[in-house]
Computed example of a mutant assay.
Amino acid sequence: MTITFEGASDDVVIVDRGAGDVEEYDAYNGATFQLRTDRERMQIGLTLETLSGCWHPSVGQVDETAPLPAWPVRFEQSTDRDYSVRLVVDAPNDAELVEIDA
């Protein structure tokens, strides 16, 4: 399953899980998500850098006991917003998206 994350305006994060499954999250102070399967977890963060007005996505471990999954991840320029980099994660089909903070 391919999931994309990108910032919009100065207070919204858009998550697209494909097949028309698009959600917007209030993210005035940024947003944090986890992608989870039964065995692996990945943390996703999006913050708005106030000087440039550009969104900065990040990927990391959930904690020190959970290694970063080897799921393909890439960054690309948003085709809709000049101020946002899109994060694309190719996660397993059973991955669950969990909103941690938005």
Results as ranks from 00 to 15, higher is better:
1 M>L: 10
2 T>P: 09
3 I>E: 01
4 T>Q: 04
5 F>A: 09
6 E>P: 08
6 E>S: 06
6 E>F: 00
6 E>Y: 06
8 A>Q: 11
8 A>P: 07
9 S>D: 06
11 D>L: 11
13 V>N: 04
14 I>A: 03
17 R>G: 11
17 R>K: 13
18 G>W: 01
20 G>S: 05
22 V>Y: 07
23 E>A: 06
25 Y>M: 03
26 D>C: 07
26 D>M: 05
27 A>F: 15
27 A>Y: 12
28 Y>Q: 09
28 Y>W: 12
28 Y>N: 07
32 T>A: 02
32 T>M: 03
34 Q>T: 10
38 D>T: 13
38 D>S: 14
39 R>N: 15
39 R>T: 15
42 M>V: 08
42 M>A: 09
43 Q>L: 05
46 L>A: 06
49 E>F: 02
49 E>Y: 00
50 T>S: 14
51 L>Q: 14
53 G>V: 10
54 C>G: 08
55 W>F: 05
56 H>D: 15
56 H>C: 14
57 P>E: 14
58 S>P: 01
59 V>Q: 11
60 G>Y: 02
60 G>K: 00
61 Q>I: 11
62 V>N: 06
63 D>G: 11
63 D>E: 07
65 T>L: 08
67 P>L: 10
69 P>I: 05
70 A>Q: 11
70 A>K: 09
71 W>V: 02
72 P>Q: 12
72 P>E: 13
72 P>R: 06
73 V>W: 05
74 R>M: 10
74 R>W: 08
74 R>G: 09
76 E>I: 08
76 E>C: 04
77 Q>T: 13
78 S>M: 09
78 S>F: 05
80 D>I: 14
81 R>Q: 10
81 R>M: 12
82 D>Q: 12
83 Y>C: 02
84 S>H: 13
85 V>N: 10
85 V>M: 14
86 R>F: 00
87 L>W: 00
87 L>V: 03
87 L>M: 14
88 V>E: 03
88 V>P: 00
88 V>K: 12
89 V>F: 07
89 V>H: 05
91 A>H: 02
92 P>R: 07
93 N>V: 14
95 A>I: 09
97 L>F: 02
97 L>P: 10
97 L>N: 04
98 V>W: 00
98 V>G: 00
98 V>I: 14
99 E>Y: 01
99 E>S: 09
100 I>Y: 01
100 I>T: 00
101 D>P: 02
102 A>V: 10
